[in-house]
């Protein structure tokens, strides 16, 4: 029997997390999807989708760091409208897989693709590459840097 995989969405807006949960369940019926609208961290999940903004407080990086302590092998995805250097640095350090704009459909598609890759990897027999491996760290840094550059290019385009 395949082990049941669990995903949790941590967002202060239950309307957002409710609809995102439905979309993810439609896309990944094998995944158990829950949501939580407080910023204290429940353990025991394979995938964490964390909102950076909880009632006006930027706590995505802190949550991502805490997830690494209680679930070191999990996939950590962060939702944020902005990507400041301090956030990027902390996310790279705690091996977050990506930062996505919650109001951008393309970003949410990219996030789904990462979830799919993670689930496929978990379903394969043999030892699983851990999220702390060097290759994963490099991939994470590369993805986050390209995301940061993309955001900067977008901001510059808006200014000009």
């Amino acid at each position: 029997m395949n082990k049941l995989r669990k995903l949790i969405i941590m967002d202060d807006d239950p309307h957002y997390s409710g609809m995102l949960a439905l979309q993810l369940r439609m896309q990944f019926p094998e995944l158990m999807v829950s949501s939580y609208n407080k910023a204290d961290l429940p353990g025991g999940y394979d995938i964490y989708v964390l909102d950076n903004d909880f009632f006006g407080e930027k706590c995505g990086a802190k949550l991502a760091e805490d997830v690494r302590k209680i679930a070191p092998e999990s996939l950590v995805l962060v939702l944020s409208g902005t990507l400041e250097f301090s956030l990027l640095k902390r996310l790279v350090n705690c091996h977050a897989a990506g930062v996505f704009d919650k109001s951008n459909e393309d970003d949410l598609e990219q996030m789904s693709a990462l979830i799919e890759q993670f689930l496929v990897r978990l379903s394969q027999p043999g030892p699983q590459p851990t999220s702390k491996s060097l290759s994963n760290t490099l991939t994470g840094i590369r993805d986050l840097m390209s995301e940061w550059n993309r955001r900067l290019a977008y901001e510059e385009k808006k200014v000009s």
Partner: peptide, 18 residues
């Protein structure tokens, strides 16, 4: 002010999904 900023942040994400 903080509550208004937070509400805008929420609407930005949820309104798109709905």
């Amino acid at each position: 002010f903080k509550a208004l900023k937070s509400r805008l942040h929420q609407l930005r994400g949820s309104a798109m999904l709905y």
